[in-house]
Computed example of a mutant assay.
Amino acid sequence: MTLPDPDPAHDGAPPSDDPSPHPLHRRLKSFVRRAGRTTDGQARAFSELGPLFLLPYQEAPLDIEAAFGRAAPTVLEIGFGMGEATAHIAALLPEKNFLCCEVHEPGVGALLKRIGEQQIANIRICAHDAVDVIDHMLQPGQLAGVHVFFPDPWHKKRHNKRRLIQPGFVRKLAQRLAPGGYLHCATDWQPYAEQMLEVLQGEPLLRNTAADYAPKPDYRPLTKFENRGLKLGHGVWDLVFQRA
């Protein structure tokens, strides 16, 4: 399954600060579309691996066992960027299924390419808005975990309402977690970390696994983008909450 002549891996683009009108005022979305070019290697991955690892969006419950070819604990990842962390975690935890949502086409192609290069079998990608996937394809208590790593922080105060981690969205995630399942968020923007903590603590279906922020779990790697930030003195905050 390894693809010939692989291109160098790319990191995700930095968060958008586009102040243009956004559909969030009409309904919550999990993403902001970004510009980007799909490389030849990513295009080959779409062609060769897409039929095996891409799941079409459907307005009906997903048969997870059929989609993955097995029954296993399933983790939803929302917005995986270029897939560096996703591929690492899925390879590290082969006993789990990873259902991954991302609408950025070069990112989807990059993760498909990593799947081929690293021979990863436990990832499926839905290239669609995660909010729709949660609303229509996932049922209550179906997930063992949810990962939301470095969502767009929308730095300017007037744009804070566009942030993904809001009470209504967290309630959707909590409802789809099985008892004992976890929600793991991470951000490198302290004001967003503080908002995340407030929102997650306010969800009665969840309990914090730490006093406030959690130590970075061993499974989450430091990406190249994150390492660059740490070298510049930027902090990173992990929050791990568990379904009661």
Rank of each mutant, 00 (worst) to 15 (best):
G50K: 08
P51R: 13
P51W: 13
P51N: 12
P51V: 11
P51M: 10
L52A: 15
F53A: 04
P56D: 14
E59I: 01
E59V: 08
A60I: 00
L62W: 09
I64E: 09
I64C: 10
A66Y: 03
A66E: 14
A66K: 15
A71V: 15
A71D: 14
A71E: 14
A71H: 13
A72H: 12
A72R: 12
P73V: 10
V75E: 02
L76V: 04
L76F: 08
L76R: 04
E77S: 09
F80E: 00
G81C: 09
M82A: 13
G83L: 09
A85D: 00
H88C: 06
H88L: 00
I89Y: 07
I89N: 00
A90Q: 06
A90F: 06
A91M: 05
P94H: 11
P94S: 07
E95S: 15
N97K: 03
N97W: 06
C100M: 09
C100G: 04
C101A: 15
E102F: 03
E102A: 07
E102K: 01
E102V: 08
E105N: 03
P106D: 07
P106G: 08
P106F: 02
G109I: 02
K113Q: 15
R114E: 13
E117F: 03
Q118C: 03
Q118T: 00
Q119T: 12
A121Y: 08
A121T: 14
N122P: 11
I123G: 08
I123Q: 05
I123C: 09
R124A: 11
A127E: 11
D129S: 13
A130G: 10
A130N: 06
V131K: 13
